[in-house]
């Protein structure tokens, strides 16, 4: 990999959806951050593609939304709550635990 890694990475859900997100947003999630850490030369770090086989497309979409939401409001106060459909709650919680968000 070059010294400056590409600014966008691809997150892939277990059902094959690919989400192309900015590296900054992706790195909000602790697990993805480590995954992409250029010093440890894992497969994901070299290719910039992360297979997240525990998360399906719907959830991952919401996760990506949250990643950007978090990035945007990082230093802001009085942030409005994000819209979460109740049926996704549990799965999102598990994904959050897995991704260390």
């Amino acid at each position: 990999m070059s010294d400056t890694p590409p600014p966008f990475v691809t997150l892939i859900s277990n059902d094959g959806f690919e989400f192309i997100v900015s590296r900054d947003a992706a790195c909000v999630a602790g697990t993805i951050k480590k995954m992409l850490d250029p010093t440890s030369k894992f497969f994901e770090a070299t290719t910039g593609r992360c297979n997240l086989s525990t998360i399906n497309g719907v959830v991952l979409e919401k996760v990506c939304e949250y990643l950007y939401y978090n990035l945007k409001n990082k230093n802001a106060s009085d942030v409005p709550d994000m819209e979460i459909p109740p049926e996704l709650c549990l799965e999102l919680l598990m994904a959050a635990d897995y991704l260390h968000v």
Partner: peptide
Amino acid sequence: MLAGRGRNKIRPPRRGLG
């Protein structure tokens, strides 16, 4: 993550990992 506001029924995850 933020909890949903509604009091709708929470569906179990489609595929349990544990």
